[in-house]
Design a binder for these strands. Structure first.
Length: 343
DNA sequence: AATGATAGCAACCGCCTCTAT
DNA sequence: GATAGAGGCGGTTGCTATCAT
């Protein structure tokens, strides 16, 4: 410990706080993708972000990392969390290390919101709990063979802990060296698609990826809760913020693989106006007001919004030189009109 | 329909640990 | 060994959506 007190990690009056905007997310993603994150403190400045380095790190780890598994925890995962918490207490990062794709923050939240209450209620009816624990134990052992032996007793033995750690090392490649950040392989992408994380593709920013056999395309797709009729509360938070459920990596066609890893690149050095415009766009698009339906207008206005946003992104694509040339002229005209109208 | 209570979760804060000098 | 800087962790807060009255 320092002893003489710590210098603040950043000047809090100079940094932005609160929810991250879509453009900040994209800046961070593209910067890390290109340069890695060897120095979190220096990163915000280098990336042109008015954020504390810690904030960037947290955002990346908890939200933007490409290997994150989103969506609800499965029953098995929840049961595993309960058992691991029994063994280790609030060692969230340690627990999280056994759930590839899950973050300590996520697990902590799940524990605090769901599991703790569930257990508390079970504790009130004594016998049920021991029954429950034994069922959890057997369930766990069937679902996680390498970890199965340690869960029947309260404290983990040295051997069983070692087993967990062994498994953890095997599972969490990302945590080995996050500077060598790797994108998930295609099976993970497919898994996300299977989980319906790609609910509705409303916009696409295509990024060409060089490939010896030609240029493939990565599509960053975003869908917005305001355009969805989903009752899922998790998708309804965040307002104009681009959420991971919204921002998914989608692949068109085969993707270049180097040593089984997909490689892609988002152009970081685009015009700063691009990011700012993107911010404005995201806010504009996610603004529910134009979409809040007057009954039969719902469908029409939503589709209008989709069309407009599609035009907008096409415009972006053309600005970035990523466009399908056949669409460019029309879209530029459309956007210019829209732009003039809004201004 | 309005209001208050509750739930869920992203983000922040402050402390701890590790490492370089 | 002392010190400072940086990353990491766990606790907590605050915002938003949903539910209940």
């Amino acid at each position: 410990m320092g002893g003489k007190g710590r210098t603040p990690c950043c000047d809090k009056s100079q940094v932005k706080r609160g929810p991250w905007s879509p453009s900040e997310d994209l800046r961070l993603i593209s910067f890390i993708q290109k340069h890695g994150h060897s120095n979190w403190r220096a990163l915000p400045k280098q990336a042109g972000l008015l954020r504390c380095g810690k904030s960037c790190r947290l955002r990346w780890i908890n939200y933007l990392r490409p290997d994150l598994k989103r969506g609800n925890f499965t029953k098995e995962e929840e049961e595993s969390i309960i058992k691991l918490h029994e063994a280790w207490g609030n060692k969230w990062s340690k627990i999280a290390s056994h759930f590839p794709g899950r973050t300590d923050n996520e697990i902590k939240n799940v524990w605090n919101t769901h599991l703790r209450k569930g257990l508390a209620s079970k504790n009130s009816c004594g016998d049920d709990q021991s029954k429950e624990l034994s069922s959890i134990s057997s369930s766990y052992s069937s679902s996680s063979s390498s970890a199965s032996s340690q869960l029947s007793s309260g404290e983990p033995s040295a051997g069983t802990t070692a087993e967990f750690e062994h498994q953890s090392n095997q599972d969490s490649n990302m945590s080995k060296n996050q500077n060598d950040y790797e994108l998930p392989n295609l099976s993970i992408i497919q898994e996300k698609l299977d989980q319906n994380l790609l609910m509705e593709v409303t916009n696409q920013v295509r990024v060409p990826v060089d490939d010896a056999k030609g240029v493939k395309t990565l599509t960053i797709s975003s869908s917005f809760s305001s355009l969805e009729s989903s009752n899922d509360s998790s998708s309804s938070q965040g307002g104009g913020i681009l959420r991971p459920d919204d921002l998914v990596f989608d692949f068109e066609g085969a993707y270049p693989l180097i040593e089984d890893k997909a490689v892609l690149e988002i152009p970081f050095e685009c015009d700063y106006d691009f990011w700012n415009m993107l911010d404005g766009f995201m806010t504009f698009q996610s603004n529910p007001e134009p979409l809040l339906p007057q009954a039969d207008q719902t469908y029409q206005s939503s589709n209008l919004e989709l069309v407009e946003s599609g035009k907008w992104l096409s415009y972006l694509e053309s600005e970035l030189g990523l466009e399908d040339s056949t669409k460019t002229n029309i879209n530029n005209q459309d956007f210019a009109m829209k732009d003039a109208t809004e201004q």
